[in-house]
């Protein structure tokens, strides 16, 4: 079985003054379809860089990244855009909805760039919106919704293009604990429906909702295994990383 995500000895280096920062320092890992993985780490652990590379928003300095069997580590901007569009559904901490578009239009955006026809776009958008329980809000603007509702719109948007992977960057970071829990439960349900979910967080409590945890420290993997039985490490609140 071909892994959905495969990092092979992957490095991401940033020059900073005279030194070179190893944001990702030789990581190898594989994630298969249908998994629910949390990538955990504190600020500066390299998890955001990891998420950018997984999300094809950035390319590694060395090493290879295979997404669905394809080496995407050397692709140019436009090819990456195509891969993002087809393979990945993004769920951001700040929701990142387009303020001028209403809910259903927001959900349609990825399909717009995929070249899906207007009627098909609308049909699929309404389907996923009903899946996240927002059928009654389709004409609202994002600012007319609560944070939890906005995050559910962004989940709907991520799912609308039927991507292989849902990539969530601190999806509950901007929500209160109750709505955060609801959003996590929704993600768990979506995973149970057969979707692959990769969740980036600094919060061990949230990470523990996943099946598998990959813990990063200083750009290296320090733990990769089931969420149950993962070493209980005292989470240090950093709050500095978005």
């Amino acid at each position: 079985m071909i892994p959905l995500i495969e990092f092979r000895d992957l490095y991401k280096l940033y020059p900073m003054g005279d030194t070179v920062v190893h944001a990702v320092d030789g990581i190898s890992m594989t994630i298969y379809e249908g998994e629910f993985v949390a990538i955990v780490g504190q600020s500066g652990s390299g998890k955001s860089t990891c998420m950018n590379i997984i999300g094809c928003l950035d390319v590694p300095t060395h090493g290879s990244y295979f997404l669905g069997g394809k080496d995407v580590s050397k692709m140019n901007d436009n090819r990456l855009a195509e891969i993002r569009n087809k393979m990945i559904g993004f769920i951001f901490q700040q929701y990142n909805l387009l303020a001028k578009l209403n809910v259903v239009e927001n959900v349609e955006v990825p399909m717009l760039y995929a070249g899906v026809s207007k009627s098909e776009r609308r049909k699929r958008a309404l389907e996923v919106l009903s899946r996240v329980g927002l059928s009654d809000k389709i004409k609202n603007l994002p600012k007319q919704l609560s944070g939890g509702q906005q995050q559910r719109v962004s989940i709907a948007r991520a799912m609308a293009g039927k991507p292989k992977l849902l990539l969530c960057d601190e999806p509950t970071g901007a929500l209160d604990s109750r709505t955060g829990k609801e959003v996590l439960e929704l993600l768990q349900e979506i995973h149970k429906e057969g979707n692959t979910v990769v969740l980036i967080t600094h919060d061990n409590a949230i990470a523990s909702k996943a099946q598998r945890i990959i813990r990063l420290e200083d750009g290296k993997i320090v733990y990769d295994g089931p969420a149950k039985g993962a070493p209980k490490q005292v989470s240090v609140e950093d709050g500095g990383e978005a």
């Binding site: 993002r84 569009n85 993004f90």
Partner: peptide
């Protein structure tokens, strides 16, 4: 930010 979102969602140059 809008441009960033659109690009993340698959908008090409």
């Amino acid at each position: 930010r809008e441009i960033g979102i659109r690009k993340a969602l698959g908008a090409k140059q």
